[in-house]
Design a protein around this nucleic acid. Structure first.
Lengths: 81, 81
DNA sequence: GCCCATTTGTACGTATGTATG
DNA sequence: GCATACATACGTACAAATGGG
């Protein structure tokens, strides 16, 4: 499982690129329901982006109902994502 | 019209305090429909907070349908706010 | 109950890009 | 071209919640 790379120069914002990657991993089952998404710190290091950008991506997924975030614990793939 | 003050030490986040102020101004008619909300820079200076915090407040109001934001123009009170 | 590491939340600052007028 | 305004993205610091030892 190689980590996909983001394109900082393309027309698609980094937060949208990461969101799309995570959507794919959720849909494919690589990130199964009720399992934690990698932490914000992990994602920011894996993709070499700012935490601000990671949080923007996760906020989108929350609004889409794909993930649920619990303070102090983590962000989890939703039950019926 | 004095500018209300925010309490940085209280339990309510600054972005929520500002959101509540703006909600009140919208409901009272002080900010009428189709009129611009003060710009992010203006709000950040008026209340002595970061632009990040202002944007968080405005994002809440957008999600509530109270305002509409147009890039390069400004943020406007929604029609049926 | 008390530390401690981890994780998310809030808030600050700065720089640059893009759209409007 | 220029000024204004929002969008994206980077950085930092500290607070608050969780869970383990």
């Amino acid at each position: 499982m190689t980590t996909p790379t983001l394109d900082p120069d393309g027309p698609v914002p980094l937060y949208e690129q990461l969101a799309e990657i995570l959507r794919g991993q959720i849909r494919s089952g690589a990130l199964p329901p009720n399992r934690p998404v990698p932490s914000e710190t992990t994602l920011q290091q894996q993709y070499g982006i700012a935490r601000d950008t990671v949080r923007h991506s996760l906020r989108l997924l929350r609004e889409e109902g794909l993930v649920v975030t619990v303070r102090g614990k983590g962000t989890y793939v939703a039950d019926r994502a």
